[in-house]
Design a protein around this nucleic acid. Sequence first.
DNA 1: CCTTCGCCTGAGAGCGCTCTCAGGTCTAGC
DNA 2: GCTAGACCTGAGAGCGCTCTCAGGCGAAGG
Lengths: 341, 341
Amino acid sequence: MSTLKPTIEDVAQLAGVSRATASRVINDVPGASAPLRERVRAAVAELGYQPNETARALATGRQRAIDVIVVTPDLSVGWLGTHPYVSRVLPGVMPVLQGVNAQLRLHAVAQATAADELDQIASTTTLGAVFAEITPDLAAHFYRRCRRAVSLVRTDPAVPGMEADNFGGAYEAVNRLHQLGHRRIAAIHGPTLNPCAIDRRAGYLQATQRLGLADLSADGNFRREGGYDAAQQLLERHPDIDAMFIACDLMAAGAVQAITASGRRVPDDVGIIGFDDSIAAVCTNPPLTTMRLPVEEMASSAARLLLAGGPLRGHRQQFPVDLVVRESTREPDTGRVGGTR
Amino acid sequence: MSTLKPTIEDVAQLAGVSRATASRVINDVPGASAPLRERVRAAVAELGYQPNETARALATGRQRAIDVIVVTPDLSVGWLGTHPYVSRVLPGVMPVLQGVNAQLRLHAVAQATAADELDQIASTTTLGAVFAEITPDLAAHFYRRCRRAVSLVRTDPAVPGMEADNFGGAYEAVNRLHQLGHRRIAAIHGPTLNPCAIDRRAGYLQATQRLGLADLSADGNFRREGGYDAAQQLLERHPDIDAMFIACDLMAAGAVQAITASGRRVPDDVGIIGFDDSIAAVCTNPPLTTMRLPVEEMASSAARLLLAGGPLRGHRQQFPVDLVVRESTREPDTGRVGGTR
DNA sequence: CCTTCGCCTGAGAGCGCTCTCAGGTCTAGC
DNA sequence: GCTAGACCTGAGAGCGCTCTCAGGCGAAGG
């Protein structure tokens, strides 16, 4: 060894074994006796040895990397990093990869060409893939292909997943609005194919039904403009709406603008609960009461799972969706009657 | 060759030369005659050869990568990806790196330990570094150390940079507000050490001075909360303020909230111009008129420059900062008189 | 006591590319 | 005609690690 970074050769020499044996214990594969294992481990510790990931990649023919996959209906690359939801996945994954010398690859693939592109990714992925946004069939296809994938959105039951309780979150939001005295509770939903959007829609539907409220639904697209347009239409069609459950904060931001533009006030005339607790939630005026999706935690859990390297089959973890109260809903117990203006 | 990806050996064989010669022409280094160059190029094209970056990295001892560096006063990792400004740098750099098999490394380093960490990065960087946020002295130090760095913020004159006209943008914003009839134009500035913030502050100061307006400045921190607090204080101290120039949209979002909370309306009572044109700008209510910083373009230009591999010395490119009119400023020529509420 | 089998172990051959260095060719100068 | 020098070219030695394969050794079985 020298002043340079120690190599496996140095470790082997210090431990008095061959490179092959050192490699075996470092990679934790069978084929080395206990005493030698001990000696090699000691040598690794003494030298502070860290495997050269590049050499490893060359020898094995693959790069250690986690592929983050986002399937979008319409592909616009510049958009990804600024997207309030997707941009939270990256900060979740990144810290997990720090120091383990694995890289993060971000793939934005268009729905239209997704099948081919996913095949391509599946054939090159090593640690595995994290689905930030995908449809169930695509996810199942990918998983069948390479067995190393974790979804952050609900997909096929066979695919391992980190699941947030979108249904429950939506249900709770509507309930909360009801408790606050609202009776004409509208909803702006997400894209019809998006699993998260589907669950949130179902939660809204079930809650309104159980509470005996009317279904005042409109479709949005998880974008601000969509929220604006949907809110505007909703208000025109049902002027007596006194609250809205909106399936993502970005749309909620648009909705707040539309509501205000119509001369109504938030939360006095129309109470609002958003979803996600993204950066958009605190930028609106007033700031949004919203259902917090623990995206960063979900993403880092997924990354850790992939990094551990174990079998993924059937792995499924639940994450809560909690209410974050800000100012787009009136205070409870005030007895105020809204919606009359 | 086979059905596998062609290697340099395949290219060499097809061209009838040695691997060394093939390598020379592929890497465009002198030491190969024109006819051989031609033959190798043809072979590369025919085979669709693409160098294996991993092998290259192992042989040369370095990874092709661009290091994106963010120096922050207080380090909070989860924050980076959701930061409206920083999160736009990544989407700018990423597409440039697609297909060239180079990776992107993101470093968030705390101001306190920056010197050491930057030394570390400087010693391992290959393509070079992009400074998303840094102080001039640190930038100069890094640049002296490795000559491969491009800053997205104004730094030491010696450091190559992609410069946005922060001063001019701020100047123009104040001018615009003045044209719209505002006379009590306050400002919420960014951190005192941040070069962008310094320039924007200077632009405001020069404009107010030239227009004969009072300097109504408050300090913020480029965060929403800071904007809220600063606006609140400003309004208390100078109740007659009729407009605000705010050094970033995130603070502006907070300011809008504070202004509304004080019973004033935007833009009728207080006109607002923000800075950045980040996601926050469209989420506020009303949406912000703001000065657009072309962050993505600046970042991709920086990445392309680094990727080209040429000398950087003295490279300096100017980017315009343009006004984006939304609804936080009143319409021109209406003759309305604001500020009375 | 000899053979068979199983388990360790290490030598060595790559992975695909870079880069040094020795040798070869060609031109110019004496 | 001979030699020095400039310029090409290719053989081959790594970069650090993985992984196959053959050999060695000891225990169990005949």
